[in-house]
Write a protein that binds this DNA or RNA. Structure first.
Lengths: 232, 232, 232, 232
DNA sequence: TATGAATGAGGCTTCATTCAT
DNA sequence: AATGAATGAAGCCTCATTCAT
């Protein structure tokens, strides 16, 4: 009996150690990606930073790519969670809460968000992690239904421009995506006050698509100059 | 006299052929990048696609990276040109023309715009081509002055939110950047009607930052929730 | 306790195997250099001759050049050791022992000595291995002090010509250097009896610079013709 | 008649121009070898330095190697000539004149002499210039007969040690060879007063092998210490 | 005749993955 | 179970030589 217990204990213990090490690998990889750039990270360096042997990494991940997707999945999960909270708030009446939550969560650690963006590009259509990538997309789309219904409601209430509901959150996604990239662009002189700048962009994101702002481009010449007035 | 002429002719002819071949290389590289993904393109494959020998590539470009920057510079040039036209229009009174030109030129060939974005990341801080990259940034910044004064005027006229002028065009940049990425994101179900979606986003871009839309996030709880109310 | 021992054993065993393989690489490189000439030796061929994979070579040496310096250092070490013994003998009274040891050690394997000379030239000022090359020179200079004092003593005793002490060992170095090259020169018909020839040269080396042999070249016309007479 | 003359003139003129250009190529190659090191010289760079096209180089030399041998042959010729003069002097009574001429001609431009040494190694047994290399060796050996008879006479007169005559000039060759290398060795601290040092070595070379200095190495322990005394 | 663009074999090096210990 | 030495495919770049103009 005792031996059984201790054996079960031991197994549980081992699993725990195993999981801890897995996390260690991911943390090491993440740190290296952020420090050195995607290109310069090798499986060797990850193992070294995690303080384990290179072969051990392959006990946890079948290929190097799996480490990458894992980082992406972990990140996406955290985003999804925060957005879900925002959506709940929105449905409770705060119309902008979802968008705000979305922006804030993606801009909370822009360097990480950007890394995930780039990892995704890098993976391209790697065959070995096709499944996990699909999983990632599923995750991202998981909010679509609730977003759609939320936005539809806002449209019905006249808050948002009456366009297909996904236009709104795709625009949001695009702006957030670009905002993250903006944090690291070398093409601009201003980068000091990025905090306030990000608040401005978030503000734009939260209100973008509000009624009265969408103009068909064909007549934008005439109307684009005066939307502020029109809204009154 | 005749011989002189023909000799000069010949030299000009050679230069033309040379430049044509250079363009051939760039086209081949571009096509491969778009078809196969950045990683899978090798100097060999570029040469093969261009129908020339591997060594010939190095008569035109000192390193592989130089091909990449060249693609970037060519693209940036076309963007810069179109934006300059838009800025001119804006100053002639059409307040949204600059932003519109910017969006339209970047969204004209989103796959190319995206490629350039990724090439830039890939290049990172490659020591060869550091100069050309700087040149690229200079090019991008070249519009800043005219943008700044244009926007300042719009702010003075009360069209745009009174924030530092660069907030406006950086937000624009971000949205365009994200919009491009959006075209290729596999995370969303809707991708059929992208034309109209892009118009919507362009519309957002053109009007973003117009007066009355920016709310300080510090009190966003209170205020962000109410634009919907205010609008009624 | 047993496990500890065996673990330590295993580590030691591994190190031994590792070092053996390293030696294998060096031996393979050495053999190839001597057989095929410096130019024709590639990392691939070294690996093949050592019976290992190309990549394995890079577990032991960071660059190809490091293999070269390693050969040089190993050789220099053996020379230095033998010369140090000779110097000790010299100081114990046998005035020519140092020079003799020097010549004998360099002429023991002239093909190897020559190889090292050429490797050094080939390395030129390769930036990798700059450190190791400096180490090599340090090693060579390490005997200078003891040589200087030894020779100074011989000069004081009237054995050697009274010139700056380093003249003597530099002349020695030069003769040895040339003697080695002589073994492989294709410019001369006689090469059969090289053993006896080398003894002759060694004899020259051992006695070169002994008193009465140095004539200032400025009046050599007059005097150089007569040492034969003087000696009688 | 006039046309014939002018045609012959023209041909002669052309040949002259052709030969001048050939010399230009050689000079360019030589300069580059000395400036940049053997490895870094390409056919392209030679052509550029000579101010002609790369293809033109191949009108004068069938392969790159032929340029190298040509440099070697030119140099050897100059040495041979000077030595022949020295030999003549020697036979006129100045016993050391040949050796002295030899040393002085080789040490006159040590960097060039060294270059030729290295070129020879680099060429190894290149098949394309095997003939010319043989020619080079023939040239070097061309003096052997006169050297042999000259030295034999000196041996008979008791000036030189009674060993096979070629021992003497091979030792000379070796010392000169080493002396040249010495000029460029990085292994020694002293390199300032090289002029005087070279005179010392030349002195050694001129008198090396004079009677009384050669000791069979088997009994060198006993005798090597006292030759100076013995000679008196 | 002089040219230099084109060629492609061949060199060095990196790194994801495997597998024997 | 953990390790890390071994592997070799694959990539970038150089340069002697050729040949069409």
């Amino acid at each position: 009996m005792n031996s059984k217990t201790s054996s079960a204990e031991r197994i549980r213990e081992k699993k725990k150690v195993f999981l801890l090490r897995e996390q260690k690998i991911i943390d090491a990889a993440l740190a290296l990606f952020l420090d050195d750039g995607i290109d310069r990270v090798t499986v060797s360096s990850i193992a070294a930073r995690a303080g384990i042997g290179k072969g051990t990494v392959y006990k946890h991940f079948l290929t190097k790519n799996e480490i990458l997707v894992r980082i992406m999945l972990d990140y996406e999960e955290s985003i999804t969670k925060r957005v879900a909270e925002g959506v709940a708030l929105s449905e409770a009446g705060e119309s902008g809460a979802a968008a705000k939550a979305y922006f804030e969560s993606r801009l909370a650690r822009p360097e990480l968000d950007r890394l995930v963006q780039h990892l995704e590009v890098r993976l391209g259509d790697a065959e070995d992690v096709a499944d996990q990538l699909e999983q990632l997309h599923v995750m991202r789309r998981s909010n679509e239904d609730s977003l759609n219904s939320m936005i539809t409601r806002l449209i019905d209430r006249g808050v948002l421009e009456d366009v297909p509901p996904h236009y709104h959150y795709l625009a949001c996604w695009a702006l957030a995506q670009g905002a993250v990239e903006l944090c690291f662009s070398r093409s601009w002189n201003y980068r000091l006050d990025s905090d306030d700048l990000m608040k401005f962009i978030t503000g734009v994101g939260v209100t973008m698509g509000n009624r009265g702002q969408y103009r068909n481009l064909s007549d934008s010449k005439a109307s684009a100059a005066k939307p502020a007035v029109d809204n009154k």
